[in-house]
Design a binder for these strands. Structure first.
Length: 284
DNA sequence: GCATATGATTGCAG
DNA sequence: CTGCAATCATATGC
């Protein structure tokens, strides 16, 4: 929906065409945009390049996108959203290139058109090369100002894309089904002490392809919400307890002399009741 | 559309 | 710094 408002450029293009067409050879006053070293343009160009919108097509683009995401993301990679992000960026890039090409083509066409007009006029009145040069210069300036608009709105679109995808809080994504599966499994199988160590968190993070702090958040939320009303989670608890019981049963059966599957010396801090059933999880 | 679920953030305490 | 509790903002199911 917010894709790109490049279409805004089209009227501009046509209006310029008409403007110049109407005033063939007359004074065109829009020449105040004098800019070989325009800082604004350079800024836009640099940003587009850095964002991988302009520049080499596929490989460079994705690399730049990944670099950009990594640069502002901080943590190395969760990479779940990268594909989505990259797809949208590719889309922007395509639109940008298409439009750019269109403008270029239009510019060339129009230049030759004007040249032809001038050539025709040269039969009725003398036309100096200087004048032709001036006309061409005017046309090119006009078109490059249009290009700048294109670049500007492309930058805008990229910025919006970025903020949408990289601002984690605004665009919350639920974890994958299997990720919550893994987390829940851990939670309910360590219900008496649902505080994973740093290593355990790292392991879980790796398995779920989320970050460690996301694991911490999840456990924080889960603990408080579980405690808040245990009743609501009872069904879930039983489900996962049963599930782990199956796997635990194997371990228990394999090593019968170890009578406990969970940590034997956990102090059971605070309000967590012993799990509905798990340590004697052998199926009967 | 609304109610609920859920991930993230904030403020506070130890 | 970690965890808890409240809260925010979005996602999701109806």
């Amino acid at each position: 929906k917010h894709a790109l408002n490049c279409h805004r450029m089209k009227p501009a293009l046509f209006s310029v065409l008409c403007e110049i067409k109407e005033k063939t050879g007359l004074s065109i006053r829009g020449a105040q945009e004098e800019d070989p070293p325009d800082p604004q343009l350079m800024r836009l160009d640099n940003m587009l390049l850095a964002e991988g919108v302009s520049g080499p097509e596929k490989g460079g683009g994705s690399a730049a996108a990944a670099a950009a995401a990594a640069a502002s993301g901080g943590s190395s990679d969760n990479s779940i959203e990268h594909s989505d992000y990259r797809a949208k960026l590719t889309q922007i890039r395509q639109i940008y290139h298409t439009e750019l090409e269109k403008y270029e083509q239009a510019c060339n066409e129009f230049t030759t058109h004007v040249m032809n007009l001038l050539r025709e006029q040269s039969r009725t009145r003398p036309i100096s090369p200087k004048e032709i040069e001036r006309m061409v210069g005017i046309i090119h300036r006009k078109f490059s100002s249009i290009q700048m608009q294109l670049k500007q709105s492309t930058c805008e679109a990229v910025m919006i894309l970025r903020s949408r995808f990289l601002d984690a809080r605004r665009k919350r994504r639920n974890f994958s089904k299997q990720a919550t599966e893994i987390l829940n499994e851990y939670f309910y199988s360590h219900l008496s002490n649902p505080y994973p160590s740093e290593e355990a968190k790292e392991e879980l993070a790796k398995k779920c392809s989320i970050t460690v702090s996301q694991v911490s958040n999840w456990f924080g939320n889960k603990r408080i919400r579980y405690k808040k009303n245990i009743g609501k989670f009872q069904e879930e608890a039983n489900l996962y307890a049963a599930k782990t019981a199956v796997t635990a049963a194997h371990a228990v059966a394999a090593a019968v002399q170890n009578n406990q599957t969970n940590s034997p010396t956990t102090p059971n801090s605070g309000g967590y009741p012993p799990s509905c059933y798990q340590s004697d999880g052998r199926l009967q």
